[in-house]
Measured scan of single mutants.
Amino acid sequence: EPLWIRPDAPSRCTWQLGRPASESPHHHTAPAKSPKILPDILKKIGDTPMVRINKIGKKFGLKCELLAKCEFFNAGGSVKDRISLRMIEDAERDGTLKPGDTIIEPTSGNTGIGLALAAAVRGYRCIIVMPEKMSSEKVDVLRALGAEIVRTPTNARFDSPESHVGVAWRLKNEIPNSHILDQYRNASNPLAHYDTTADEILQQCDGKLDMLVASVGTGGTITGIARKLKEKCPGCRIIGVDPEGSILAEPEELNQTEQTTYEVEGIGYDFIPTVLDRTVVDKWFKSNDEEAFTFARMLIAQEGLLCGGSAGSTVAVAVKAAQELQEGQRCVVILPDSVRNYMTKFLSDRWMLQKGFLKEEDLTEKKPWWWHLRVQELGLSAPLTVLPTITCGHTIEILREKGFDQAPVVDEAGVILGMVTLGNMLSSLLAGKVQPSDQVGKVIYKQFKQIRLTDTLGRLSHILEMDHFALVVHEQIQYHSTGKSSQRQMVFGVVTAIDLLNFVAAQERDQK
């Protein structure tokens, strides 16, 4: 057995438009009618409502009807409940999964919650491996369901041993009777949507819809739904939504950006999952974080739909894509998950301010006199920076000697690579993860907040409520011999709460 199987392995699926269902090699399930009293909570997966979006479509000038398939009504709160249950049931049916076995899954959280929910009911041990950027709410729900959680670096490539995929496979090879159901490759993922989600949409719309818009992560949702719609409703256009920084969209030119990270969760990847059939997507749109969270908040405030950030991405694209539809036509959007997962993220004004998705003037509360002053007023001194090749031991000596707790790590040209902190280095040394002679590049981390000289002290204040420091950066445009230009970030300084307090105190003292 291989040590790991690539999540982007070539698909062996034989589905073709027009091929009889009787030739399918898979076990198919028909939607079942729910009894009045459910035998367990797993029976509350599927049969989610279709809700008309009344205000947002009109606000953006849509002539067509805009409908939302509300997947956050599933038992675990997301569309991923469907595939989690289906993968477990299919693994039980073919004898792969037996009582007492362990389920391991690399996930952005929602599939993990679905699997942990099913594992709690069915009696399996469950280990979820997820990147650090995923919300604390997801972690809390997983723990409450009895799952064990392993976190991995957000910026690790999918084929790196440190990625959530790599760590999951390492655990599988170490733990007896453990299984990775593997949402990236498992046919049960798109089949769950082909058999149930798509049929529900067709039934709820009486077979009449002209466009379907869905955000894409593993691709199982859009693949399964689109294949069924292509068979039953061939005139329906399928629109895929991919965040900026991901590479799922086609044509490839759409993916060209210097951005590699994004805040919206559960969609987009740096590889093409095996289950994603991009041939059934008629057109791709890219979405960005700001519009995703703005539209998610709009869905909550104006439509009462308590959905997550990827739902915002989907609707932001839908109001663009559906401009081509006329009166009497219908566009369906998939709202994948609930706001429950993001209470401390985009639902929080403070978080939105820190990330730059909300401006101070958007909030009406009274601010102190210094709130709208610029960061450049602080008069920061030149920063202490270190090269990635310097040793951890030497870096600790320098920081202690100069009285700093942290320093930016830059390359020879001064471009920011990340940050090192005294606390992080000492804990890594004590844990045996690094040696004093190791290069400081081994303990770089990139989960820090950046701020510009033109940003306000109010925004800085919000950042420092949650973080010990902020890195002050400025952009530099560099022209190359080819005539092309590129933008790079340079370090201007490091600012802490002490710097802000000293500035405010000094100004008030001078005024007296």
Results as ranks from 00 to 15, higher is better:
Ile239Met: 15
Gly240Asn: 04
Pro243His: 07
Glu244Pro: 10
Gly245Cys: 08
Gly245Phe: 02
Ser246Val: 02
Leu248Tyr: 02
Ala249Pro: 07
Ala249Phe: 06
Pro251Tyr: 02
Glu253Val: 11
Gln256Trp: 11
Gln256Asp: 07
Thr257His: 04
Thr257Ala: 10
Gln259Arg: 14
Gln259Trp: 06
Gln259Pro: 14
Thr260Arg: 06
Thr260Asn: 06
Thr260Phe: 13
Tyr262Pro: 06
Tyr262Phe: 08
Gly268Phe: 02
Gly268Tyr: 05
Tyr269Phe: 05
Tyr269Ser: 06
Tyr269Trp: 04
Asp270Val: 04
Phe271Asn: 02
Ile272Trp: 05
Thr274Ser: 07
Thr274Trp: 02
Val275Cys: 05
Leu276Trp: 02
Leu276Ser: 06
Asp277Ala: 02
Arg278Cys: 02
Arg278Pro: 05
Thr279Val: 09
Thr279Gly: 09
Val281Cys: 15
Lys283Leu: 09
Lys283Pro: 07
Lys286Asp: 02
Ser287Cys: 12
Asp289Arg: 06
Glu291Leu: 10
Glu291Asn: 08
Ala292Phe: 02
Ala292Asp: 02
Thr294Lys: 02
Ile300Trp: 02
Cys307Phe: 05
Gly308Glu: 02
Gly308Trp: 05
Gly309Asp: 04
Ala311Glu: 04
Thr314Ile: 09
Ala318Ser: 14
Val319Arg: 02
Val319Phe: 12
Lys320Arg: 05
Ala321Thr: 09
Glu324Gly: 10
Leu325Phe: 11
Gly328Ser: 11
Gly328Ala: 02
Cys331Gln: 06
Val332Trp: 02
Val332His: 05
Val332Met: 15
Val333Lys: 02
Leu335Phe: 09
Arg340Trp: 05
Arg340Ser: 02
Asn341Ala: 06
Thr344Phe: 02
Leu347Ile: 12
Ser348Trp: 05
Arg350Trp: 09
Gln354Asn: 13
Lys355Phe: 11
Lys355Val: 02
Gly356Tyr: 05
Lys359Leu: 09
Glu360Cys: 08
Glu361Phe: 10
Glu361Asn: 15
Thr364Val: 02
Thr364Leu: 09
Glu365Arg: 13
Lys366Arg: 06
Lys366Thr: 14
Lys366Cys: 13
Pro368Arg: 15
Trp370Ser: 04
Trp371Leu: 08
Leu373Tyr: 13
Val375Gly: 04
Glu377Arg: 06
Ala382Asn: 12
Ala382Ser: 12
Pro383Phe: 09
Thr385Leu: 10
Thr385Tyr: 02
Val386His: 07
Leu387Thr: 14
Pro388Phe: 06
Gly393Phe: 13
His394Ile: 02
Ile396Ser: 13
Ile396Thr: 12
Glu397Pro: 04
Ile398Glu: 12
Ile398Trp: 07
Leu399Gln: 02
Leu399Val: 08
Leu399Phe: 14
Arg400Cys: 14
Glu401Tyr: 11
Gly403Ala: 08
Gln406Arg: 02
Gln406Phe: 02
Pro408Val: 05
Pro408Tyr: 02
Val409Thr: 14
Val410Gln: 14
Asp411Asn: 10
Ala413Ile: 09
Val415Cys: 13
Leu417Arg: 11
Leu417Gly: 12
Gly418Val: 02
Gly418Ile: 02
Leu422Arg: 11
Leu422Asp: 10
Asn424Leu: 14
Asn424Gly: 12
Met425Trp: 09
Leu426Phe: 11
Ser427Tyr: 11
Ser428Glu: 14
Ser428Val: 12
Ser428Ala: 09
Leu430Tyr: 11
Leu430Phe: 15
Leu430Gly: 05
Gly432Ala: 14
Gln435Pro: 10
Pro436Arg: 11
Gly441Arg: 15
Gly441Phe: 12
Gly441His: 05
Ile444His: 08
Phe448Gln: 15
Gln450Asp: 14
Leu453Gly: 05
Asp455Gly: 05
Ser461Leu: 11
His462Lys: 13
His462Phe: 14
His462Arg: 06
Glu465Cys: 15
Asp467Gly: 11
Asp467Asn: 11
Phe469Asn: 15
Val472Gly: 15
Val473Gln: 08
His474Ala: 06
Gln476Cys: 09
Ile477Ala: 13
Gln478Val: 06
His480Asp: 11
Lys484Val: 13
Ser485Asn: 02
Ser485Phe: 13
Ser486Thr: 14
Gln487Ile: 11
Arg488Gly: 13
Gln489Val: 13
Gln489Phe: 14
Gln489Asp: 02
Gln489Ala: 11
Met490Asp: 15
Met490Gly: 13
Phe492Lys: 15
Gly493Leu: 13
Val495Thr: 11
Ile498Gly: 12
Leu501Asn: 07
Leu501Glu: 02
Ala505Val: 14
Ala506Val: 04
